[in-house]
Design a protein around this nucleic acid. Structure first.
Length: 425
RNA sequence: GGAGGGUUGGCUGAGUGGUUGAAAGCGGCGGUCUUGAAAACCGUUGACGGCGCGAGCCGUCCGGGGGUUCGAAUCCCUCACCCUCCGCCA
């Protein structure tokens, strides 16, 4: 959510941002906010002076009664004022509600370095790393796994439904090893490990931007809770409604969790094997930074995720997402795509974003120089997050990249200790 | 599942209708003292919003929402959450 004052003072920039993000419906929300805000400020002028009168009179009545004097005339007069105050308060509440509602429908403003674009075709490939393996004989990961039963999609269908893979044997060990490998690397770079709840309440989902606009993405469970679609939701809400110590920023967290996504409406080659599933594991990075530091943090975070792919020896490319493809809450976003030689295509394994103050405003996460009980003025923090990395496609790329003629997979050295074997058979 | 108790400022915790945005303590900040520091002492210290060039003024906020009243942290209704005990349980 953008700050109301920012919108008021930068209405045209917000309007351009809405168009650039290809969200024309939000124009109506912006106009509704501007109109309601204008009305409300006029109304509040009247309301507040009336309230001031009432407060003064009430104090006077109290003083008179204490002396034993009569105050009936003032009380009669204030009775009318009270009725008028109530009338204005109701209108004020109604306007405030409209503003709050429509504020949630206005997307974040892209950073000036983000290229304009209408769709994913306008994303910019900024870098490509590693030598892609190209060989028509290389098998896609689902064929490799079918032979060796590293994961079992059929079993998942029986247990739950399509898109819930069951990892088994050395396949399960690979998942566990990858998690430990990623977490160790992130710990070495100063990320504190967090093991958060997998269910969150509506307030948390709203604060990070899953609600109200992406409700269909999440599984909702009894009790009004939602299964997290990413640990970004849990971890970012760690500091909801808090004033942080500005001098202690940045705060850096990482979390390894399952993620649950409904992903309605996808089909075909996109959903073969591990390409797109409803439950998957992911290690996520989350940062809370000072506003002036967030873009350096975004670059560093991206480099961290890239470092993981490099350590695994997986060729990848980095995309700078254009305005039209980067989502509602982001100001700037990179995607990392890993090369899948068995499918001869790129697979997204990481998405690293700077939300600037957009989430922090909904979260009411601020910081103050000198600590939460210091004397400095509070200000919004910036939040960032990035995958490091999403497991299924990383595993797909690993299996396909390191497959050998006999269908086995020779693990990259960095993983061998974690998985407890050199070769998957 | 049953019974009871709570929700107040960065923290602990007073406060049952009238200058209470809120005692006190802790913490923070400034100062006195000190070679320096600590201790002690004095002062100061909420968030959010509107208006104003500014000094500043005004409003809202004591879990959320609604009600009673000239006036509500205080009374009533309602919802949410937390805690304790019992039962059950990994």
């Amino acid at each position: 959510m953008l700050e109301l004052r920012y919108i008021r003072e930068n209405a045209e920039a917000v309007r351009r941002a809405i168009r650039a993000k290809q969200l024309p419906d939000a124009v109506a929300s912006l106009d509704a906010v501007l109109v309601a805000d204008e009305h409300r400020r006029l109304l509040r002028g009247d309301l507040e002076s009336l309230q001031a009168r009432r407060n003064a009179a009430s104090r006077e009545i109290g003083a008179r009664k204490q002396r034993g004097d009569d105050a009936d005339d003032l009380m009669r007069e204030m009775s009318e004022v009270a009725a008028e105050v109530k009338r204005l308060e109701e209108r004020d509440t109604s306007l405030a509600g409209q503003i709050a509602l429509h504020l949630l429908e206005i997307p974040n403003v892209p950073h000036e370095s983000v290229p304009y674009g209408a769709s994913e075709h306008d994303n910019v490939v900024e870098a490509e790393h590693g030598e892609r393996r190209v060989d028509a004989d290389l098998l896609p990961h689902w064929e490799l796994a079918e032979r060796s039963r590293w994961f079992d999609l059929e079993a998942g269908v029986t247990l739950t439904g399509a898109g819930f893979p069951v990892f088994k044997g050395v396949g399960a060990r690979l998942v566990r090893g990858l998690a430990a490998f990623f977490l160790d690397r992130l710990a070495a770079q100063g990320y504190e490990e967090v093991l958060p709840p997998l269910l969150v309440n509506a307030a948390s989902a709203t604060a990070t931007g899953q609600l109200p606009d992406k409700e269909g993405q999440m599984y909702e469970v009894t009790g009004g809770y939602y299964l997290i679609p990413t640990s970004e939701v849990s971890v970012t809400n760690l500091h909801r409604d808090q004033i942080l110590d500005d001098d202690a920023l940045p705060l850096r967290y990482c979390a390894y969790t399952p993620c649950f996504r409904r992903e309605a409406g996808s089909y075909g080659k996109d959903v073969r094997g591990l390409n797109r599933v409803h439950q998957f594991d992911k290690v996520e990075m989350v940062q809370f930074t000072r506003p002036e530091d967030s873009y350096d943090a975004l670059e560093a975070m991206t480099r961290t995720a890239e470092g993981l792919l490099e350590a695994l020896g997986l060729p990848y490319r980095r995309l700078l997402m254009c305005t039209g493809d980067m989502g509602f809450t982001q100001a700037k976003k990179y995607d990392l795509e890993v090369w899948s030689p068995g499918q001869a295509r790129w697979l997204e394994v990481s998405s690293i974003s700077n939300m600037e103050a957009f989430q922090a405003t909904r979260l009411a996460t601020r910081s103050r120089p000198g600590g939460s009980d210091g004397r400095g003025k509070t200000r919004s923090v910036h939040t960032l997050n990035g995958s490091a990395l999403a497991f299924p496609r990383t595993i797909a790329a690993l299996l396909e990249t390191y497959q050998q003629g006999d269908g086995s997979v020779l693990l990259p050295e960095v993983l061998r200790g974690y998985v407890g074997t050199d070769v998957l058979r």
